[in-house]
């Protein structure tokens, strides 16, 4: 049985001359991110565009950025990642971790999980919110 490639879908939006935000969920119940730290150490999970310098959205006529913070992200487009739930599935001790998230402002990746625990554990990550700012219509 084949498994579909993981993907995150944003809803289509009819917009006018205003800045709108579309949201999608990364790590749904059917597409959980499984992560583990089987040996004493830490694990870090980052997310970035495959080609950070040039990747963007397009409606066929105009391209919109994902990492432009101008105009609170409304000028050219910006994506923000926030939230997320860490559900430990294995391991005796609760690991020390943070889930910073953040907004793309440059070619730098955004950290989804940062763990420095020295104990073995496994967990599932779900419920990250990907918020994409729609740009003003030209």
């Amino acid at each position: 049985m084949s498994v579909a490639s993981p993907a995150v879908s944003f809803p289509t939006t009819t917009f006018s001359f205003s800045c709108q935000t579309q949201t999608a969920t990364f790590g749904t119940a059917s597409q959980k991110v499984k992560i583990g730290n089987p040996i004493l150490g830490g694990v870090k999970l980052d997310i970035n565009a495959q080609t950070p310098a040039t990747d963007n959205w397009t409606d066929g006529a105009k391209n919109y950025s994902y990492k432009d913070s101008a105009g609170a992200g409304c000028t050219n487009g910006q994506m923000t990642i926030s939230g997320g739930t860490f559900t430990q599935t294995a391991g005796a001790n609760v690991p020390t971790y943070t889930m910073p998230g953040g907004a793309f402002t440059s070619t730098s990746p955004v950290t989804l999980l940062n763990n420095t625990s020295t104990t073995a554990w496994e967990a599932e990550l779900t419920g990250y919110t990907l918020a994409r700012r729609s740009c003003r219509a030209s």
């Binding site: 995150v8 980052d46 997310i47 970035n48 565009a49 990747d55 994902y66 994506m79």
Partner: peptide
């Protein structure tokens, strides 16, 4: 569009 890669980094 935006193609994102997850970097599992240790």
């Amino acid at each position: 569009l935006l193609v994102v890669s997850i970097l599992l980094f240790t």
